[in-house]
Design a binder for these strands. Sequence first.
DNA 1: AAGTGGTCTAGACCACGGC
DNA 2: CCGTGGTCTAGACCACTTC
Lengths: 238, 238
Amino acid sequence: MPGRSEEPAYKKIQGTLRRRIDSGQLRPGNPVPSERELARIHRVSLMTARHALTELARDGIVERRHGAGTFVAPPKVQFNKLLGYTEQMASLGLTAHSRIVSSAIVTREHEISARLGLHPSSRLGRLERVRLAGDEPVALEICYWSADDFPALIEAPLERTSLFAVLEHQCGIELAYADEEIDATDADQRMADLLCIPKGTPLLRMRQLIFSSTGRATVYVTGFYRSGRHTLRIRRFR
Amino acid sequence: MPGRSEEPAYKKIQGTLRRRIDSGQLRPGNPVPSERELARIHRVSLMTARHALTELARDGIVERRHGAGTFVAPPKVQFNKLLGYTEQMASLGLTAHSRIVSSAIVTREHEISARLGLHPSSRLGRLERVRLAGDEPVALEICYWSADDFPALIEAPLERTSLFAVLEHQCGIELAYADEEIDATDADQRMADLLCIPKGTPLLRMRQLIFSSTGRATVYVTGFYRSGRHTLRIRRFR
DNA sequence: AAGTGGTCTAGACCACGGC
DNA sequence: CCGTGGTCTAGACCACTTC
C-alpha cells in the first residue's frame, strides 16, 4: 500500500523525526521510537520503518545501538560542509557584507573555461568582491560562471545576497560539492591595497570548482583570505 | 535461510563483486549484474541482493542508474583521505625522507595535553622533523603524543619510517580520522633556517588532531608546508 | 525475559531508461 | 516494450543489551 507518486513513506517518517529533533522536542541522546513502534504508528512494514532509521543513521542524525535502541546523535559540528561565505558568517551569527570591486563579462580566461567544461573562449561572468567583517576587509573572492547559462547572475544584488542563494533559488541549481585546492601565498600590491594590508602578508588561497547535483561544474571561485582572520576546519577520514 | 553466524549473505555478494572489480575483470563503466540476477545467482531474495548493491553504491564502488542498471564507478581520486606524509609521497611515486631536528619528552605543553585529552602536565613525546623532497627541505612537522601510552615511539627510526606506520603496526592503533585547522602564516627566523627559505615566506599551516578508531585523540601534529610545493586537495559536500 | 537492531524471505507494484 | 532500480509488505529468526 505505498502512497503512489507521493513522497515515499520512509521519507515521511524521516521528516517527522527530523522535525521533532530540530524543534528540540527530541534532544541529543534521547531514544527515538523503535523500528517496531514506527512501523505501528505509521502503519508500514518493519522494513520500511527500518529503512527510514538506517538512512537517518547514515546521515548522522541518529545513532543505532544494537540491542539497545536508536538515539538522537549529538549535535554535529558542521565539518567539511560546503558553505558560501555568507552562510559561513551566518552560522557564526555574523552578517557578511561585500564590496563589488569589478563585475564584467570576460572571454579570454581559457583555463577557467576549461575547468568549467566550456569552450576555451566562452563568455564568462566574472565578479570580484571584497568581503568585509564590520568595516574591515578580510577576504577577496573572484567568481567565474558561464555567462550564457546564467545571464541573470551579473545583475543580481551580490553586495548583500549570497551567490549560493541566487544560484539555488533564482537559477534552480542544486549545488552538491566542490573540489578545492588550498595553499598559502602572499599579497601582491593590488590585493594589499584592496584588503588594506601590507604587501607580502600571507594569505590562505582557496580555489573551488563547485559542482551541481547533476555533476556539472557550475562556478569557479578563487578566494584569498587574510591569515589570522580565517581558519579552514575540516575532518578527514582514513 | 540466512547462513547463521557466518558472514551475512549481502557481504558475501559484495565480496565477490569487489574482487571482480579489484582484479580488473569488471572495469569502470561496466555493468554489474542486476539485483534480480544477483538474487538468482546467490539464491537470496531480491531485498538481500539489493542491500548488497545499495551499500556498495554508498561506498562509491558502484553507481546506480534508475532504469538503466548498476555500473562500476570510475576510479576514485582519493580526495580527503587522511594520509601521513610518507604515504602521500608514496602515492605520488616518491620516497619521503626526514631529518629529525629534535626529539624529547616535554611536560609543559598544557594546551596540547588538553587537546589530547590528557592531564595538563602530562609527559608528551615531541618529535620535530624536516621533510625532504630529494635534498631540499619542504616542510616542518612537529608531532606530540602521550609518552606514557606510547613509550616506544620516541625510539622508533622515524627518519625513514612513517609515524602512521609505527602507530598502526607497532602500537596496534587503528587511526580513523583527523580534525584539522588550516591557515596561512609566514616563516619566522628559525623555520626559515630549517627550511632554507627567506624569513617571511608564506607557509601553509596545518594542525591535525588525529583520532583512533576508538575515538581517542592519539597524536597532535603541526605542519608548516612551503607554498608552491604543497597544495591541499579536498572535496567538500553541501 | 523482554525489547532492540541485524539479517532475510518471497513476493508486489511503480517509475525510469533504452531500444 | 522489457529490464532496470525504487519502494513496500508481512512476516521470520538471530544477536545483542538491559533489566
